[in-house]
Design a protein around this nucleic acid. Sequence first.
DNA 1: TTTATGTTGTAAATCGTTTTTCGGGAGGAG
DNA 2: CTCCTCCCGAAAAACGATTTACAACATAAA
Lengths: 347, 347
Amino acid sequence: MPEKAAKRQPGSRPSIRDVARKAGVSPGCVSNVINGRRKLDDPIGRAVLEAVNELGYRRNTMASNLRRSQSRIIGLVIPNFENPFFAELVAKLEQRAETTNYRIVATSSREDPETEAREIDELVGWRVAGVFVIPSLSSRALNLVSASETPFVFLDRIPQNAAIDGVGVNNAEACALLMRHLFEAGHSRILVAYLGDGIANVAERLDGVRNAVAEHEQPVTVDYLPTGDSIEGARAALDAYFDHNPKPDAVFCLFNTATLAAYGLLQQRGFVLGKDMALAGFDDSAWMAHVHPPVAAIVQPIEEIAKVAWERLLARIEGDTSAPETIRINCRLEARESLASVETQAG
Amino acid sequence: MPEKAAKRQPGSRPSIRDVARKAGVSPGCVSNVINGRRKLDDPIGRAVLEAVNELGYRRNTMASNLRRSQSRIIGLVIPNFENPFFAELVAKLEQRAETTNYRIVATSSREDPETEAREIDELVGWRVAGVFVIPSLSSRALNLVSASETPFVFLDRIPQNAAIDGVGVNNAEACALLMRHLFEAGHSRILVAYLGDGIANVAERLDGVRNAVAEHEQPVTVDYLPTGDSIEGARAALDAYFDHNPKPDAVFCLFNTATLAAYGLLQQRGFVLGKDMALAGFDDSAWMAHVHPPVAAIVQPIEEIAKVAWERLLARIEGDTSAPETIRINCRLEARESLASVETQAG
DNA sequence: TTTATGTTGTAAATCGTTTTTCGGGAGGAG
DNA sequence: CTCCTCCCGAAAAACGATTTACAACATAAA
């Protein structure tokens, strides 16, 4: 019989028409079956399902999304994947996505504003439902984003006076909390390692430290050491500091690479954490909890950040037009043994 | 003038027709301009470009891909984002992608075969050009993948006798190398911490260790300790071992969480690495290089893995139909101070 | 001037779905 | 028996881009 044979290329996947032909129904009908718009316990439903299995049919998501003009994809632009904080944020957001039948597409900007701009553009091209952005250093994202009608939410590094939703932690308060903790424990000579100027986050942390120092009654000595963002750089800066200054009671690192650098340096110089010297860092890492003695950390509640941010973006996607807001979440202090009191030191 | 007004919804983005209307040309012509199929320094080209800017037009990637039936998207399914090894692999692959004008979509299976299967299915639905998979524990990926005509490449954890390309490291050889190193340094009582049975990777590593032991002339004592995959579990297992056994000369951890657990435990028990005890781990981490003394590691050359894997997948995408192959890349031993010789110990 | 050739933009077909429209048949009420 | 619903599937339109076919026009060659 000269039936018109399937004309699709041997290399390409079967389409809904192939399924329809095989099941002896129309493409629209197949679509209805697949999308559950009809009960499938009748002969037609079964025939369609069988054809689907036999041909190994998989719906073409591009075509589907195009037609319904919606995408259920959420973009996520982060500075890099290697930072455990970002990595965990990706993971938590992905978990949220799954429960809401969305999908996260994560890309990294490698801290490069150019790359970041390209990524955002690309995501908009995909007509994603919304985008989370952790801005790179000296990011231009804010400009791009304000023009767009795609919902955006900034995470972690929230630009100042942005007319865009932002979700992050209360950096200043967390740092003030830790400083007060150090003061109460009797530390009066404290070294604060910070990244450098220009990052909103670290600036906020520094502010928190300064405020706590200003509010403190007793006289204390606090030195501020900019370290750059590489571990090696931080190590060198700390080394130079210790060579030329009296030994502090405590070291507080405002970002995670500095904490590792400081830890290694203090070990090498023979200080015993929690006895000779206190150490604390912003951001927790696996190694900090498991070395001995464990290193105290200001822990960002990543799961909650993800939760709140997700709710915010979803609300926007669903049409919420209220004024943009910046949500700050409080950190938790994980006071581990590296935070010894001066009394303990003396004893 | 009763010109037919734009009929698009206020909420949706401009289409190529809107641009065409504004520039006074046909959609096809706009397409040609945008895709550089005509020189754009003439009045028409300029008019189109201007209309594009004015309307903020961004090409709809879904529609574009649908029409050309190609996607330049590469899927990547990893067990999780928190493991630094996977994170770095994502980063390196993403870098490769950028230079080839592809795009990586990374998702995680959370070590769950169900989730993994869903992710793979979803990627196939997007008609991605190809997919990298780091299989989860007890993965069913192999079955799914063999049926599909989408090119797949397995990374890191390569299933045995798979009819699919795989790129990973030479686990056995690397471990044998380290063991020989320990033997040469005079260690004769060695504890090997391994994850447990069932993971191809760790099994290979264990084989390498066993082979080296078998080939060694002198009598040595090697204990094998399964630790489970959590840090806490590993810590507990190690603790129990040290309670009930004579002190070993060296500890070799076959995967990264165990290395951290062992490091913390040895510190806590007061051993000085590189003097009382040697420690080495499979997989490098930032903390290992920066603590004091630094911890030796078998380093997987992630950049090269990414490079080779990328080439393999691209070749498949471009139609290479040669027999599937498994490519093994050699690791590098980063012999840091934690690897002391017994002579040093004695001195 | 005529014919061949090349250029360039419009119109229409197409990708694989979903959704709307439409028509035919079944079933119930009058 | 007729009329009116109701249901269900086929047919066709639509999503937004690309690509092919084609017509119009210009240019060059004869």
